[in-house]
Nucleic acid binder design. Structure first.
Lengths: 221, 221
DNA sequence: ACCTGAACACCGTTCAAGT
DNA sequence: ACCTGAACACCGTTCAAGT
């Protein structure tokens, strides 16, 4: 089972700040004018509140609830994020940044390419378990990059690109080691992560079993 | 790829009546007093309208729209189905009855047990493709029988039982032929069908590829 | 008995008024 | 500039009035 991945649910606080900075940079405008101090504070509180709300309730999270948790009026939430969807997207991009960092810093350095693949599924599943919003969104990511470009959901285009780039390296290493089927491509991973999401979200207790089955399906023919 | 399964989307009319009768029988009350003629007619029209609406929009289908399509007032819809959820469940039970019939009449008679397994995934995927409501629900089915008993979603308890019974026979035949891994159980199928749903719903065009990967994962070790 | 649709509740979104 | 919350729109659900 390898090392348990750093579960994102354990404490929102420690990584939250790093994630927030990251996400603020990846906003629609590459580098918009800096916010007034109080506005920046409010934006951060809104993101924290939204993270908690979406993690718990997925797309059923309520805007009024988020505003209350953040200690601001609903109008303020809408000033920062024009729509509930856009707020959900911002949160998903944070999660995505976290996952990219995990692949970059933990999986690519893993000397065993097969183990790295295995850990990527484990990490994906435990993220889905901790964050319903991410689990809801991972399917839209699998739909392909077109969705990211102007589409209503999902991570930013450059995040998709980095994801594919990192995944390609992961897969290339596995090919070099001869541990996966010849036709396995990086583009196969998002659909498989999406597939995992519905098992996890269905509350199937031994989701690890289905990771094992899929992994067996990825072994060389 | 085997024979393309009878796609449920092609024409709602032909099977609709048979399905309707089936579902009417599997209503909450085993055999409630017969409905007045006009009420029975309305109920049928509501089920037809709901089938179309849920197939197209999944859980986002609107009650007013269903009432309009059926040519009745909203109140009438609520008289027959106390809640949107209960109406969705009725439709899912119809689909489920259809799937059970397919397994019973098409897959169990298939002389090749491996091919039967393959066709079960294909049929599941094309049903999910044709019916967003079913695709939305199949995850809740995978959660296990507890959900069916009093739970808010999914097929009736006896349908779940029949499903497991039929699937067990399917798997037993595959074990007898030695074409699947030793530890494969009937209870593995619902989670795998649910996994398929998110791939199909994500709009991944070559979902057949992921069926093939999972099937490879089911082969003997 | 059953049907109808206006009325109510809830939640996403807007906007006039404030600082 | 930014914040607030009452008001509006939309959709699930109810219920008084009809047949």
């Amino acid at each position: 089972m390898s090392t348990p991945p750093p579960t994102p649910s354990s404490g929102p606080e420690p990584e939250a700040r790093a994630i927030r900075d990251d996400a603020t940079r990846s906003a629609p405008e590459p580098d918009a004018k800096p916010l007034r101090a109080d506005a920046a504070r409010n934006r951060a509180k809104i993101l924290d509140a939204a993270r908690a709300a979406f993690a718990e309730h997925g797309r059923d999270a309520q805007m009024d609830d988020i505003a209350t948790r953040a200690g601001v009026g609903v109008g303020t939430v809408y000033r920062h994020f024009p729509t509930k969807q856009s707020l959900a997207v911002a949160i998903v991009q944070q999660r995505f940044a976290m996952i990219l960092a995990f692949i970059r810093d933990e999986l690519l350095p893993d000397p065993d390419p097969w183990n790295a693949l295995e850990r990527s599924f484990e990490f994906c599943a435990s993220t889905q378990l901790a964050d319903r919003g991410y689990a809801d969104a991972v399917g839209t990511i699998a739909g392909g990059s077109p969705i990211a470009g102007g589409g209503p959901h999902g991570p930013a285009v450059d995040q998709i690109e980095e994801m594919l780039d990192l995944t390609e390296r992961l897969i290339a290493r596995a090919h070099a080691a001869g541990v996966v089927r010849d036709d396995l491509a990086a583009s196969d991973m998002p659909p498989l992560y999406a597939a995992l999401a519905s098992i996890v979200q269905a509350g199937v207790p031994d989701w690890r079993r289905y990771i094992a089955i899929v992994l067996d399906g990825l072994r060389p023919r």
